[in-house]
Design a binder for these strands. Structure first.
Length: 136
DNA sequence: GCCAACGTTGGC
DNA sequence: GCCAACGTTGGC
């Protein structure tokens, strides 16, 4: 079981949108590192859902329901998509500010490379974020 | 809305 | 193959 974090601008596609949809196709990734992360995902991997630009916080947990498949929105190039389904909304959002303030979370891609849209999260960091959200 | 950081593109 | 120019992302 691996853990990931995906980012979306809530204006584009929010966690609430994913909850409404039930299953959401995670497509449109046009960055090789992010694509490779999508391809490394397995069914049932847990995914933190982060709102960028507005919100700036981790709002919920989703899980992966498909292996990576060719991105149908890609007109050219070799891109991938996966499907996500919501697991639950976090009791309270975990803000970027709070994440940056945690010594143990300084190595996260979110902190080190804020532009990467799909990134792996170490299991211990995942647990820390859940604890910060009041989940544990 | 601004701008820094990063990735990509294209001229040489 | 290098690197300057450009476009995009996302925190502030």
């Amino acid at each position: 079981m691996n853990y990931w974090l995906v980012k979306s601008e809530p204006e584009e596609y929010s966690f609430t949108d994913l909850e409404k949809e039930g299953t959401g196709m995670w497509e449109g990734v046009r960055n090789y590192q992010a694509r490779n992360n999508l391809r490394a995902m397995a069914v049932d991997d847990q995914v933190l859902f982060y709102h960028s630009r507005q919100g700036l916080e981790v709002v919920g947990i989703a899980k992966v329901t498909t292996e990576a498949y060719p991105d149908p929105t890609a007109e050219k190039g070799d891109w991938s998509a996966i499907d996500l389904t919501p697991v639950r909304r976090l009791p309270k959002g975990v803000s970027l500010k709070d994440i940056k303030a945690r010594k143990e979370l300084q190595e996260l891609g979110l902190v080190r490379n804020p532009r990467l849209s799909v990134m792996p999260i170490p299991a211990d960091a995942f647990q820390i974020i859940l604890a910060m959200a009041g989940e544990i």
